[in-house]
């Protein structure tokens, strides 16, 4: 066992972990943050996406100790209390959630894309979710939701300025 220090959703954690434990297992099994999903466990489905120092990465392909000192955002850290993020609101409004298994990863990747660019074109939206597998929706409603979220965020930025 080795000691791991990291920040998850703004909260500092120090915990002893097995060196061969992945970050995904650490989040789910040690911290009970089960929003991050384990789909394929080999980097092919995207369901385990989390933000590490503000970049989406696959937590199943990372030894937990690799995240020493990092700031991690999981789906549990996206909403502010009861106030959903515009991406989450838009996913609900567009019916972009069916079984919900891919939703945390879709939201994480969408939030990251829109934080950099709140006016993405179709290709950028498609690329954003290109490596997160959804077996229910056929992706159309998710793409529409991200466009809707973008317009919500543009409006908010406009109203705020």
């Amino acid at each position: 066992m080795k000691l791991l220090n990291l920040t998850i959703n703004g909260r500092k954690h120090t915990k002893a972990v097995s060196p061969s434990m992945t970050l995904l297992d650490f989040l789910r099994e040690e911290l009970n943050l089960t929003g991050t999903k384990n789909g394929c466990d080999k980097g092919a489905c995207g369901c385990c996406s989390v933000m590490i120092d503000d970049k989406p990465m696959l937590s199943c392909l990372l030894p937990a100790l690799e995240a020493e000192g990092a700031a991690i955002t999981t789906i549990e850290g996206i909403a502010k209390g009861n106030a959903l993020h515009p991406v989450q609101e838009a996913m609900i409004e567009m019916g972009a959630i069916q079984c919900g298994f891919c939703t945390p990863a879709m939201v994480i990747n969408g939030v990251h894309m829109l934080a950099k660019n709140n006016n993405p074109d179709d290709d950028e939206v498609k690329e954003c979710i290109s490596a997160t597998v959804c077996r229910c929706t056929g992706y159309n409603s998710i793409e529409k939701a991200l466009h809707l979220a973008a317009s919500k965020m543009r409006r908010a930025a406009h109203d705020g300025s």
């Binding site: 989406p56 990465m57 990372l62 990747n109 954003c128 490596a131």
Partner: peptide
């Protein structure tokens, strides 16, 4: 190469 999440890593 691969996917956006993998290219970040």
């Amino acid at each position: 190469v691969a996917s956006p999440q993998i290219r970040n890593r």
